[in-house]
Simulated scan of single mutants.
Amino acid sequence: MPEQRDRWAELTSGQAGEDYARRFAQLADAGHDVHGEAAFCTTLLEPGARVLDAGCGTGRIAIRLTELGHHCTGVDIDSSMLAVARREAPTQEWYLADLARLDSLGLEPEFDLVLAAGNVIPLLAPGTESTVVRQLASALRPGGLLVTGMGLDAAHLPLPEPPLTLAGFDHWCTQAGLALRQRYATWHGDPYEDGCGYAVSVHSRPAA
């Protein structure tokens, strides 16, 4: 049976890199804050932390976190997105890989924070979500944090309907040995309430 493609590839055919980068450049030129995710993560990190940007896309967040003094590694399955990241920051670590097979990269584990922003989890290949969460959790050091951002309704997703629920995602995290620490409605820290269309979640791996 052919391997099922991720939802992102179904939407973009793996050709979205330049358009995606152009859209955020236009937002920045118009005065919009395009670094909310990086600013949020920085509040959770000690200086010089190790960060894995899982589903890093064009590298926007990882590059900003590096500018802020952290050590960032980016992984993405879309070569067109990674081509932009490698052009913008050629000395950073960028890996082309399926997050469901993250362990095949042989990365040094014990990251302080693993980030999956930009609807990474909802746009995975159907049926791989729990495997990906387990892989991301395994990359964390004891006490490390998994930070995710995802839409929960059609208004916050490039999909006609959400492919998962927040309760389902929390269940995968629990199965992977993670505990919910904080949840917000935006990257600016607005309080999360039931029914919000977007969730920023911070799960932690138990300390040794």
Results as ranks from 00 to 15, higher is better:
Ala185Ile: 01
Thr91Ala: 15
Ser80Asn: 06
Gly74Pro: 12
Ile121Ser: 09
Gln182Glu: 14
Tyr184Asp: 05
Tyr184Ile: 04
His171Thr: 01
Pro162Met: 08
Ala97His: 10
Tyr95Gly: 13
Glu193Phe: 01
Tyr198Val: 01
Ser130Gly: 12
Pro191Asp: 03
His156Ala: 06
Pro142Ser: 09
Asp170Trp: 06
Glu129Phe: 13
Val120Ile: 15
Cys72Pro: 01
Leu166Thr: 13
Tyr95Asp: 15
Val75Tyr: 05
Thr131Lys: 00
Glu129Arg: 14
Thr128Tyr: 11
Pro163Ser: 06
Leu145Ala: 13
Glu88Thr: 04
Val75Ile: 11
Gly106Pro: 03
Leu166Arg: 15
Glu108Asn: 10
Met81Pro: 06
Thr131Pro: 02
Leu140Lys: 15
Ser79Leu: 14
Arg181Cys: 15
Leu107Pro: 11
Cys196Ser: 09
Pro160Gly: 06
Gly106Phe: 09
Val120Arg: 05
Gln175Tyr: 03
Cys173Asp: 14
His188Tyr: 03
Glu161Phe: 00
Ala89Asp: 10
Pro126Val: 05
Ala137His: 11
Trp172Gln: 03
Gly189Phe: 00
Ala125Phe: 04
Leu140Thr: 11
Glu93Tyr: 00
Glu193His: 11
Gln135Arg: 14
Ala117Val: 04
Gly144Gln: 05
Val147Ile: 08
Ala155Lys: 08
Ala179Met: 08
Ile77Phe: 09
Val114Pro: 01
Glu93Pro: 00
Asn119Ser: 06
Leu124Met: 03
Asp170Pro: 00
Asp190His: 03
Leu159Cys: 14
Ile77Asp: 13
Met81Val: 01
Ala97Met: 07
Leu140Tyr: 15
Phe111Asp: 05
Ala176Ile: 02
Thr128Ser: 15
Arg181Trp: 15
Gly195Lys: 06
Val114Ile: 13
Ser104Val: 05
